[in-house]
């Protein structure tokens, strides 16, 4: 095996355990999209073009609620703003990558791929280290597309009364469950959640996601400052 494919497969095996929760997430997305009346082609196009679980689910929820394009786009943007956080560390390790690599990796690198790429790049000095990110990202891609297809298929079979749409809040809940151990996070979570729930009907243009998120972030800004003063 060449050095490049060895590094590529190291990326594949590193990211594989993280794919376990992605499987139900992808299936749920496919099922939900079909339930909401999207065609199989549109559903597949979303997974290929957007390729981001949280972004796609937010898109679906707001689209089916009749939100405008601008609201959907800005909500997707807000969901993605968490990616900027990783920038600080990652760009450093990728500064010597060719531009084509940066473009390819940008498309592939979802949260799970970031999680394994960062520690690898930190210690690797191999000139072909980009293949690790590529392997990890491509694995995520294959799993996401396959589970979307399974979901599309199941979406036409699974009865609606099974209430599988409840899996959506559960999936997002699972993503922030670690934050429930921290007081400031809990306060932010409750404030954002209450504003979204009570603002759902009141806040115009279905902007409740954006309003709730910015309110939550403002509270975080204030509380962390207050904590820092002590």
């Amino acid at each position: 095996m060449s050095n490049r494919s060895k590094i590529f497969f190291k990326g594949v095996t590193d990211v594989s355990p993280l794919m376990i929760p992605v499987v139900p997430f992808g299936i749920i997305f496919g099922v939900l999209a079909i339930d909401l009346g999207l065609t199989s082609i549109t559903t597949m196009a979303m997974s290929i073009i957007i390729f981001g679980g949280a972004s796609q689910i937010i898109f679906l929820q707001l689209f089916s609620a009749g939100a405008s394009s601008l609201i959907i786009l800005s909500s997707v943007g807000a969901v993605n703003s968490r990616h900027l956080l990783y920038g600080a560390v990652l760009s450093e390790h990728m500064s010597d990558f060719k531009m084509t690599w940066k473009i390819i990796i940008s498309y592939f690198l979802v949260d799970q791929a970031f999680a394994v790429t960062n520690p690898y790049l930190k210690k690797s000095t191999d000139k072909d280290k980009a293949f690790h990110s590529f392997g990890a990202g491509a694995t995520c891609w294959v799993i996401w597309q396959t589970t979307t297809i399974i979901g599309i298929f199941l979406g036409s079979i699974i009865p609606e009364k099974l209430g599988l749409s409840f899996a959506v809040p559960l999936t997002f809940l699972a993503l922030i469950v670690d934050d429930l151990r921290k007081l400031i996070n809990v306060i932010v979570i409750i404030i954002s959640g209450l504003i979204a729930t009570f603002g759902y009907e009141i806040i115009p243009f279905k902007a409740y996601v954006i309003v709730a998120a910015t309110s939550g972030l403002t509270v975080a800004l204030i509380l962390t400052k207050f904590k820092g003063l002590k």
């Binding site: 956080l85 922030i176 409750i190 409740y208 996601v209 709730a212 939550g216």
Partner: peptide, 18 residues
């Protein structure tokens, strides 16, 4: 520090109404 709160700020807006 503030950016690390993005998931806590945005995901409840999906979770709670659902």
């Amino acid at each position: 520090e503030v950016l690390s709160f993005v998931p806590s700020a945005i995901f409840p807006a999906i979770i709670f109404p659902a």
